[in-house]
């Protein structure tokens, strides 16, 4: 009897990498993720009719169903499905360091799948989804809109890694562009000092936005499994230094762990919701993280 495949295995990044169509990929991820979830019964302003209820004093007279009044000679109010109409900005770091891959998919591909899945998911939630790709400057901008999913997915599909990574300038530019409270999702490998990352995050938070930071790392960046003396080249700057990995491994791991800890503590203190993923982590973990944050944000409002 063959072993049953785990449902979450369909969300394994390595499995998803075999799907060419980004939209299909996002649909696969999101629908698989939504299985078993129920819609929140919160009613609000939307185009989706929910039910009628009797008019009560204080209700907006514009919502009275006059045709029903004609038939029944009673006042009924039309209730609609809740629709937050939130703006979601997906900020995707496409600097050259994101192209690194020790095995399986690269960080950029992981970020690409994650961004596509989030875009599809948000679109299903009737949120307006926009996309910003950046390195040390902004490369592409797709303004948030309900009908921009195809453009967003198309833009994500055409991403090519390039440029050096820097958060401050592009995030400052984005914070200036975002005029309405939005949910900002930052997908990056965050190769900057934690303080600089915090400053950039603070700029976005300062506009009243919700910031979710997805820190993407390759397993090799955390474990540093290399052996044998050799030259290491910085993917972004091209700088080369000779290294004996065996000698540096422990120290490196310690520094990376400190970096992650600093980011987590600084951002988690209120500036943003920080989550670390390596490229072997299934995408639904990231979606769960996003959803929980989304619910938390809605409760806050």
């Amino acid at each position: 009897m063959p072993a049953l495949r785990s449902p979450t295995s369909f969300l394994d990044p390595a499995v998803l990498a075999r799907i060419d169509s980004l939209e299909l990929l996002a649909k696969t991820v999101v629908q698989g993720f939504l299985t078993g979830l129920h819609r929140a019964p919160k009613l609000g302003m939307s185009m989706d009719f929910a039910e009628h209820r009797a008019y009560m004093p204080g209700d907006d007279t514009r919502r009275i169903d006059w045709r029903l009044y004609g038939r029944t000679d009673r006042f009924y109010i039309k209730e609609f499905e809740a629709d937050t109409n939130a703006n979601v900005y997906l900020l995707l770091d496409i600097s050259r360091s994101m192209a690194f891959s020790s095995a399986g998919i690269s960080k950029l591909d992981y970020g690409r799948y994650l961004a596509a899945s989030l875009a599809y998911f948000c679109n299903r939630q009737r949120d307006r989804v926009g996309l910003v790709t950046f390195a040390n400057t902004i490369v592409n901008v797709v303004p948030p809109a309900l009908k921009h999913l195809d453009v967003v997915l198309h833009t994500i599909d055409r991403i090519e890694p390039g440029g050096q990574g820097a958060l401050r300038d592009p995030l400052r530019a984005i914070s200036e562009q975002v005029r309405r409270r939005s949910i900002v999702v930052l997908i990056s490998d965050l190769y900057e000092e934690p303080v600089a990352v915090l400053q950039a995050a603070t700029m976005l938070r300062g506009s009243g936005n919700d910031l979710i930071v997805f820190h993407i790392l390759d397993p090799a960046e955390r474990e540093f499994p290399f052996d044998g003396a050799g030259t290491f080249e910085d993917l972004e700057s091209g700088e080369r230094i000779p290294i004996v990995p065996e000698q540096l491994r422990d120290e490196y791991r310690r520094l990376v762990a400190e970096h992650i800890t600093s980011l987590s503590s600084m951002l988690g203190a209120g500036a943003a919701d920080y989550a670390l993923f390596d490229t072997s982590t299934p995408l639904d973990y990231a979606l769960f993280r996003f959803l929980s944050n989304r619910l938390r944000a809605s409760r806050v409002r």
Partner: peptide, 24 residues
């Protein structure tokens, strides 16, 4: 006694942490 330098160069996303480690 010494470590042979590999001919191929290993590409790495960032040398940010490696630069902080003193050379041995």
């Amino acid at each position: 006694l010494t470590h042979r330098q590999r001919k191929e160069v290993t590409a790495f996303p960032s040398l940010m942490f490696l630069r902080q480690i003193p050379y041995r």
